[in-house]
Every structure is written in C-alpha cells, then in structure tokens.
Design a protein around this nucleic acid. Structure first.
Lengths: 142, 142
DNA sequence: GTTCGTGCAAACGGTTTGCAACAAT
DNA sequence: ATTGTTGCAAACCGTTTGCACGAAC
C-alpha cells in the first residue's frame, strides 16, 4: 500500500481520517512485522510525539472493527510475554512463529495444503489457518 | 487418566504432590473443556475452599513447565475476552473454535491432513496445528 | 452548535510476586 | 534444620474508560 493510499483506505472503510489515524495507519498497514500495540505506539510517537497511548489503542481497535487490520493472538513470545499483535495482511495466509526470536512470519496460503477440513463431521468451518512453530533458517523470507 | 494415577503423573513429571496440586490436577488433567485459570480456580475451590488464586496460577504454570499440561492462547471468546486456556491433551491435535460460544474443541490429528509443511522453504517446522473457526453443529463431538 | 476525535489520568482485570507461616523431609 | 509449598495482599502490566477540551463539519 502506498502512502497516498492510506487516506483513501481509511475512507473506504468508513473511518474519518485524522492526523493521528493517518500516522498509525501509515505504519501499521505497511509493516510486515506484526507489531504489538506498544510497538505501534513507540513507532508512532516518534512521528507524532504528543499522541497518547489511549488514542493508539482506540485507533487499532477501530481499524480491526472496520476490517482494515486483523488482530492475532498466537501465544507467547520467547521471553514469555503474552502477545496480541496486528496484521495488515487481510488475505488468507498461515503463520510461522520462530522459536528463537518469537517473530511471526506470514506463510503464503499456497505454501501449505490442508485437506479434509470441509469434511469434518459436526463442524462447519468458516475459516482456518495453520500455525507453525520452529526455527527460521537464515535468510528466510518474511 | 484415572484418579489414582494423578499422584503418579505428578511424580513422573518431577512434581511433588500436595493436597492443592492433586485437586488441581484431578480436575485439569481429566477435563476436555479447556478451562481458563479462573475456571480451574472456581472448580477447585469447591473441593478445597481455602485454596488461593495464587496457588492455582502457580500450580498451572508449574504443570505447563513440567510438561503435564499445555497452555493455549487462541484468541478471543465470543464476548471479546482474551483467553488463555489449559489443555491436558498432549497428543498432536488440531483445534476448532465455535464462533457462537467460543468453546474450543479438540480435532483429532487424522481428521485433517496438512501437506507440504516439511517442504517450506526457509523454515524448519518443529510442530504445527490447524486452528479452525466456525459453527459447531448440534451433537458435534467434543 | 453538534458531532467526533484526542489526551490525560484513573480504573480495570488477569496474573505474578514478596513475604511470613507452615509442612514435609 | 533445611527445603519446598501455601495464603494473603500488594504490585504489576497491558488495556479500557470517563471526562473535558478542542477541531471539524
């Protein structure tokens, strides 16, 4: 997503742009780092030092509500922190979590094949993803 | 797991049994309900009214550390609560989360087939699971 | 002037921790 | 005696909320 599109992206999702929302969006919609709310706050504060934590939390929640962003709750990072992170990638994809660093990598939908989900007895599966954990080799694409 | 085996299970995992630990284990190792810490506390308190929340939390963390129990952090329940739950099922399996109730159901490993995980470029996958969300039909097995 | 967004600080809820009492070995 | 376990209460940390100010339409 290009910088000039951020404003349009907000409007398309029924979100009234504001300086704060644009700065948050400009970071969170363009990253592939799956940041936590705190990381978004830090990043955004460097560009808009007077922004408050509450605004960042409210903005992120708003983006999730409006479908601009997805929230991932995948477990704990290496140092035992529970983690809620944000993912601007709205396409179906899987996730790989690096044991060593806790980093979350997107895995393209076609890279893994899941079968029989639609034949699961008793369950009507609306969506699914594979969550993998292990070691990322050096130079792995994110 | 049978009641009389709970004591043995603790010892086998290097956990010194105590009245509190036995009561916690007797519930959490035998349930298929994926309880939260709070739910464990409530259940256990009815059998051991003087037990403290801290002991339950400490005990659950100890069990996870010692590999008796797994902690799942899979997202939010229907009412928006973030949830950390405990799962005594140590065998590889998948999870289905009911959109309507937030209930987590174990899905047997063989019920879903995942391929190409071992061929993922750049990643050395140690373990994985499929996380599904949707509607559980009436009478679905847990 | 009404609505909407922001900043601040206080509140909140789940979890952890420090510590003194206690039990087990 | 030493070591490990418990209960209590306070601390903690990420997140949410109430409220008054200010900006935008």
């Amino acid at each position: 997503m290009m910088a000039r599109d951020v404003d349009a992206a907000l409007r398309e999702h029924g979100i009234q742009p504001s300086a704060q929302r644009l700065v948050v969006a400009d970071f969170v919609l363009r990253t592939d780092e799956h940041p936590t709310a705190e990381q978004v706050f830090d990043r955004v504060k460097s560009r808009l030092p007077m922004i408050s934590r509450a605004t960042v939390y409210n903005t992120l929640n708003l983006f999730v509500e409006k479908g601009l962003l997805r929230e991932l709750v995948l477990g704990r990072s290496k140092d035992g922190e529970r983690r809620v992170v944000f993912d601007p990638n709205l396409d179906a994809h899987h996730h790989f979590i690096d044991d060593a660093t806790g980093a979350i990598h997107d895995v393209p939908w076609e890279a893994v094949k899941v079968s029989k989900v639609d034949r699961l007895e008793g369950y009507d599966v609306r969506e699914y993803q594979v969550v993998m954990r292990g070691r990322a080799k050096r130079g792995a694409r994110r």
